Amino acid sequence: MVKKKQALGWIEWLIGWMYVTYELLFQRTRTSHLQNPLELPSLNDLTCIVTGTTSGIGKEIARQLAEAGAHVVMAVRNRKTANELIDQWCSSWAGILLNVEVMELDLLSLDSVVGFANTWNARLEPLHVLINNAGIFSIGETQKFSKDGFEEHLQVNHLAPALLSVLLLPSLIKGSTSRIINVNSVVSSIRIKRLSICIIATNNCFHVSPMRPWLNAKGILRAQVRFRLESSSLSTTFVYHMHYVGFVDTEDMNTVSGKRKYSSLLGYTNSKLAQVMFSSVLHKRLPVESGVNVMCVSPGIVHTNV
Rank of each mutant, 00 (worst) to 15 (best):
M1F: 09
L8W: 08
W13P: 03
I15P: 07
Y19T: 02
L25S: 12
R28V: 10
T29E: 11
T31P: 04
L43Q: 02
N44T: 01
I49D: 14
I49G: 06
V50W: 00
S55G: 01
Q64V: 00
A68Y: 03
G69N: 15
V76F: 11
T81N: 05
I86T: 06
Q88H: 15
G95S: 13
L97M: 15
V102A: 08
L107T: 13
G115N: 08
N133R: 02
Q143N: 13
S146Y: 02
K147L: 11
V156M: 14
P161V: 09
P161N: 15
L168D: 12
S178M: 06
N182E: 02
N184D: 04
V187D: 08
V187R: 13
S188R: 12
I199R: 01
N204D: 14
N204H: 04
F206Y: 08
W214S: 14
G219M: 04
R226P: 08
F227T: 07
E230S: 13
T236D: 04
T250Y: 09
V256N: 04
G258W: 03
L266S: 14
M277Q: 06
M277W: 01
V281M: 02
L282R: 08
R285Y: 05
G291W: 03
N293G: 12
M295D: 02
P299V: 11
